[in-house]
């Protein structure tokens, strides 16, 4: 072994070294291409948020920061955005509460009907959005409920619940049960154990689920289009105005959401790391 290590390393010819470098880094080079593919449209959207294009944003007409200074310059963009945020917050709150309850029941208890509950959670995820949207709208029509704000909130809660359950359940499954046993050994009752041990441990999972629910709700188009009637949401506004050109203010909103999400995640990571014990 020692002899081997001491032997002079044979120098490879340059093209062999280059091909070896490529062989070793092929997967990383590939990843760079993958990320480029993912980010081209994001970059395009960001660049065209500075376009001095007026109402239609199809051709580059010159650089301006006016769209960023006044994102409500196209008022319908901000109305739509406001609706999307309101719907998103309500849908996130309700689906997180309902989904977390189900996740605890499935993750913590053995009860009759557990596997059919699991199936009921899986089904909405295995149903295409168009079917969810169309079926809910036909139910609303039967009960003569007009599509609009609340039907949209209900629709969003419905398709977010399953994703919340799956996310929170995964977190509960990863908990060490001995922590709760220890709390009870120290004479904490069931409620105290839940409040001071279980809940704080599951909290990151719940926060992740809420973030997921909000992003699913905020970006939803198909189900919203069926159940919102004349109410405008941000994706709906983009879709409808696509034919005659989307105002650059929409690009400002899209890019801001991107940066906002990045900041939230980075800050969340930072706080999470700081709070880690050791």
């Amino acid at each position: 072994m020692k002899q081997l290590a001491d032997a002079p390393i044979p120098t490879l010819p340059i093209n062999a070294r280059i091909s070896r470098w490529f062989g070793r880094n092929l997967i990383r080079i590939y990843a760079v291409f993958g990320f480029t593919y993912l980010f081209i449209p994001v970059l395009y959207t960001f660049i065209f948020s500075f376009n001095d294009g007026g109402k239609s944003n199809l051709v580059w007409k010159g650089f301006t920061t006016a769209n960023w200074q006044n994102p409500c310059g196209a008022p319908e963009v901000c109305t739509a955005l406001g609706n999307s945020i309101k719907i998103g917050l309500l849908a996130t709150t309700f689906s997180t509460i309902l989904g977390t309850g189900i996740a605890f029941a499935i993750g913590r208890y053995n009860f009759k009907g557990r596997s059919s509950t699991n199936l009921l959670i899986f089904l909405p995820m295995a149903t295409p959005e168009i079917v969810l949207g169309a079926s809910l709208l036909s139910l609303f029509l039967v009960f003569q409920i007009n599509p609009g704000f609340w039907p949209t909130v209900i629709a969003h809660v419905m398709f977010c619940i399953s994703f919340v359950v799956v996310t929170v359940k995964a977190r509960i499954a990863s908990l060490d049960p001995r922590l709760e046993q220890a709390a009870m050994d120290l004479y904490a009752n069931e409620f105290e154990t839940f409040r001071r041990v279980t809940l704080p441990l599951v909290a990151p999972g719940i926060a992740g689920a809420a973030l997921l629910a909000f992003s699913l709700s905020f970006d939803d188009f198909i189900i919203t289009n069926f159940n919102s009637g004349t109410l405008s949401t941000f994706p709906k506004f983009v879709y409808v105005s696509a034919t005659r050109g989307i105002p650059p203010q929409a690009n400002v909103i899209g890019s801001s959401m991107f940066f906002l999400a990045l900041i939230i995640v980075v800050v969340g990571q930072f706080v999470g790391n700081k709070r880690k014990p050791h």
């Binding site: 959207t45 994706p235 983009v238 879709y239 989307i246 899209g254 991107f258």
Partner: peptide, 13 residues
Amino acid sequence: APFFTSFLLRTIA
């Protein structure tokens, strides 16, 4: 992250 720039904006892009 690209998720957060609306998928419609990206498709139209």
